[in-house]
Amino acid sequence: MRFKGLDLNLLVVFDALMETHSVTRAAERIGLTQPATSAALRRLREFFGDPIVVAVGKRMHPTPFAEALHPQMQQALRGVERAIATPSTFDPATSTRRFRIIGSDYIMVAVLVPLIERFACTAPGVRLEIIQPNEHSVAELEAGRADLLVTPEPFLASWHPSEVLFEEEQVVVGWAQNPIFARGLTENDFYAAGHVTVAFGADRTPAFADSTLSRMGRERLVEVTVGSFASAPWFIEGTPRLAVLHERFVRQIARRFNLAWAPLPFDFPKMQEMMQFHQSRTGDVGLDWLRQQMREVAAEVA
């Protein structure tokens, strides 16, 4: 099929070349012979008037034009893929659909673990794939490689629909034998202690509480920074260190670690935990059902 003179099958070849940087591997990915893939590359070059990929040593590297074009082509292909793969009806009792959710280990503990327990009875064939957030999370949603992004409001993409999953308090967490919890945590106690903070991805994006505290202007003594919420208790138990974590998460992990917690000794905003999906997924009945299940579980946990 052609669209404005372009064979649309070439878009699949273009995407595979951009992902693999190799004619051979692109051919394997899309099920073509290497000569057929090379011929498709020649046709792409002729149509766009650009080399698309060039050989540097033993690898093919995209041209600047191809790099700029790729996100748009990906979005078009993922839209077609979703349109074909998404059924018009959804029966959770018989569905074997897999949902890919980008969410932290906090969301896993607070919502997704009880959600899977619910599915054992109501949707035994439904599967979840949980992806840790990083600096590419919005791009993953944009490219169709995730169904749902669960994140605090400041980290949303403004151009896609979102909704509140729940509101969350932040609490100060420490070792249960730390005397400051018995006598009553003060602001001076908080800032005098060493702290454990959480940051995600290669860009080390701080968690909601840590980024909010940084903006408040008073410096903390950060002794340890970890890449997940679940790592923090290992650096707290048996020490005078503190961390600021989500209350739902703390209530779950406190049963497994010897921890105590208290409200922050100063005013601190509530966090709005949001669910976001791609604009093109509006009307996806399976995704609508999943979001409703998550809202119900979040309300029950609260």
Results as ranks from 00 to 15, higher is better:
Leu148Ala: 00
Glu135Met: 00
Phe155Arg: 01
Ala143Arg: 07
Pro133Met: 02
Phe208Leu: 04
Glu169Ile: 11
Glu187Gly: 08
Ile180Val: 14
Leu149Arg: 03
Gly144Phe: 01
Phe155Glu: 08
Ala202Ile: 07
Ala192Val: 04
Glu163His: 06
Pro206Glu: 09
Ile131Glu: 01
Ser137Leu: 07
Ala199Gln: 15
Glu168Trp: 02
Glu153Ile: 10
Phe181Cys: 00
Ala199Thr: 09
Leu156Lys: 10
Ala207Asp: 04
Arg145Leu: 13
Val150Ile: 14
Glu187Phe: 02
Leu213Phe: 07
Ala199Phe: 11
Leu185Tyr: 09
His195Pro: 09
Glu168Phe: 02
His136Ala: 14
Glu140Ile: 07
Pro152Asp: 10
Val150His: 02
Ala182Asn: 08
Phe166Lys: 11
Glu140Thr: 13
Gln177Ala: 10
Asp189Met: 14
Asp189Ala: 13
Leu141Arg: 08
His195Val: 05
Glu169Cys: 11
Thr197Trp: 15
Gly184Arg: 08
Gln132Trp: 04
Val171Arg: 03
Ala193Asp: 06
His195Gln: 04
Asn178Phe: 09
Ala192Arg: 12
Pro161Phe: 14
Ala143Thr: 06
Leu156Val: 08
Ala209Pro: 01
Trp175Leu: 01
Glu168Arg: 03
Ala207Leu: 00
Phe190Met: 10
Glu153Gly: 07
Val164Met: 11
Arg183Ala: 13
Asp147Gln: 00
Pro161Trp: 14
Glu168Asp: 09
Val172Cys: 05
Thr197Asn: 14
Tyr191Gly: 13
Ala193Thr: 03
Trp175Ala: 13
Glu142Asp: 07
Arg204Ile: 10
Glu163Val: 09
Thr151Cys: 13
Val164Asp: 12
Ile130Glu: 08
Thr151Asp: 12
Leu141Tyr: 04
Leu141Cys: 03
Glu153Val: 10
Asp147Thr: 01
Asp210Lys: 07
His136Val: 14
Ala182Ile: 03
Asn134Glu: 12
Ala209Lys: 00
Thr212Met: 10
Phe200Ile: 11
Phe166Trp: 13
Ile180His: 08
Leu141His: 04
Ser158Pro: 13
Leu148Cys: 01
Leu185Thr: 06
Pro206Val: 06
Val171Asn: 03
Ala157Lys: 12
Leu141Thr: 06
Leu156Pro: 00
Val150Met: 03
Val171Phe: 03
Gln132Lys: 13
Phe155His: 04
Gln170Lys: 10
Ser211Val: 11
Val198Thr: 11
Glu153Tyr: 11
Pro133Asn: 02
Pro133Leu: 05
Thr205Gly: 01
His195Lys: 11
Val171Ala: 01
Pro179Gln: 02
Ala192Phe: 03
Ala199Val: 09
Ala176Leu: 13
Gly144Cys: 09
Pro206Ala: 07
Phe166Thr: 14
Phe200Trp: 14
Ala176Arg: 11
Ala139Pro: 04
Ala146Ser: 15
Phe208Asp: 07
